[in-house]
Design a protein around this nucleic acid. Sequence first.
DNA 1: AACTTAGTTTCACATAATGGAACCACTAGG
DNA 2: CCTAGTGGTTCCATTATGTGAAACTAAGTT
Lengths: 271, 271
Amino acid sequence: MAQATGDGTVGKALDVLDRVASFGRAVRFSDLLEASPYPKATLYRHLQTLTHQGMLSFDPDRQVYSLGIRLVRLAHAAWQQSSLAPVARPHLEALSQKVGETVHLAQLDHGQVLYVDKRNATRPIEMYSEAGKVGPAYCTGVGKAMLAFLEEPALQEALSQQSFHRFTPHTLIDADALRADLQAINARGYAFDREEHEPGIICVAMPILTGKGRVLGALSVTSSTARTSLGGLEALVPLIRPVAARIADEAENWRFPYEGRKTKQTMTAGT
Amino acid sequence: MAQATGDGTVGKALDVLDRVASFGRAVRFSDLLEASPYPKATLYRHLQTLTHQGMLSFDPDRQVYSLGIRLVRLAHAAWQQSSLAPVARPHLEALSQKVGETVHLAQLDHGQVLYVDKRNATRPIEMYSEAGKVGPAYCTGVGKAMLAFLEEPALQEALSQQSFHRFTPHTLIDADALRADLQAINARGYAFDREEHEPGIICVAMPILTGKGRVLGALSVTSSTARTSLGGLEALVPLIRPVAARIADEAENWRFPYEGRKTKQTMTAGT
DNA sequence: AACTTAGTTTCACATAATGGAACCACTAGG
DNA sequence: CCTAGTGGTTCCATTATGTGAAACTAAGTT
């Protein structure tokens, strides 16, 4: 299988970058060395390059590498431009106001859920999610909502990336049970999280789909069993559905103000 | 000059990534092609690699590239781990509460100011800055506060990267005037922005320095001429200074809970 | 059907990455 | 003071990779 590194030099360099990131703290060269499959010299050069490029930063005092500032810059741009997030923001805001509960916006990333944005409830509740975090797809509302609308090959791929772990007594812990649920979700048009990831936490989630049915992301309203029930959440569907549709529409049709195909026709002059 | 691309293949790939980012929207292959110095095939392969790596994402419907989700993930990690931001956060919060004004945390990036975090005033005012944005260094409080404490070679480098532009009548538009101000700032220990970037916007800024005097970032309290004066802001210095010191200290001494140099001594075994 | 325009693939060639080994700079121990 | 060990940096011959002109394919256009 090895969907691993792959692509030549750049792939390796990015892999190194990821490794630094995964430490979650500043790392010394040798720490990294023993955690990497690369020989000293190679690793060294990659670190140099990345540092030189501003993707990493090196603290000469403590002799440690950490993630560079260029990443923060890029990330800002990424967030801004990931057509979903900025477009969805005001809608999340409005929806969360209207229902008074926590609202999530998520996207699928290598079979995992990435929480792209989050709006807290009027009275927030304690839970795992946080904008920027990644979580499991097979046991979260947003995750299942997205999986349920993937095409077969993509679904296959995504399922193979799940590592089923029983978080709560309600977690679906095998592909078959999951597939059954996904089928139901696909038919119904939205997903539930029945305390599958965190005890006491429930949600309804709706996929965000392009006109052609491609999955862009998902939207969810989350609450706790203490506060409401699945039925109570389901009652919100009529409020959520149009929001998802609206976001999908805007995200898809959002072209830049001045896009008009660059008056190329007019300049027929040769090169 | 050309501090440009540099580092071999990885450098080029990252350059391509930046170019995509700088469009601030999804781009078609050909848009990118005419904006890049790379020949078709090369650009094409870089895009492939980056996409394959998840740094870019390709929308097959519209045939456009945009920044990938892996960036968002990395960025999140970058922010979390850039020792300043998370450590500083509660202090910014507290400071902003106490003074009731907007507080910024910034770092220096290639001679530019990157706003890493921001706490809005009780009554916010309209201004340019925003967490994640980059701005000029020579005409902002935080920028000058950092520049003033750079070592000569680094300062030289940073100054050469400024492209002096007169934003307001008060903007310092040449290196000499700036150097003079920096000298004063260095002596005084903090910087002012006298409406140099945006009319009506003033601030006091304090550098965040390691014990050895290395510049980590800067902190500022911003307000408007309508609300206060430079004198009024200067009165806050006794409140700001200890916060900067505290942040510096925590950032510098923040090692991971379990860091203790990995019991390496104990395992003298070979290989 | 002939002619664009936009994107993808090929292939001989040049460049850039690789990694083993040698080389510092320090620190600790004898 | 010398010697061994560790952590980091540099060399350099070998080889893998990236390069880009040009050829090709798939959609439009006229």
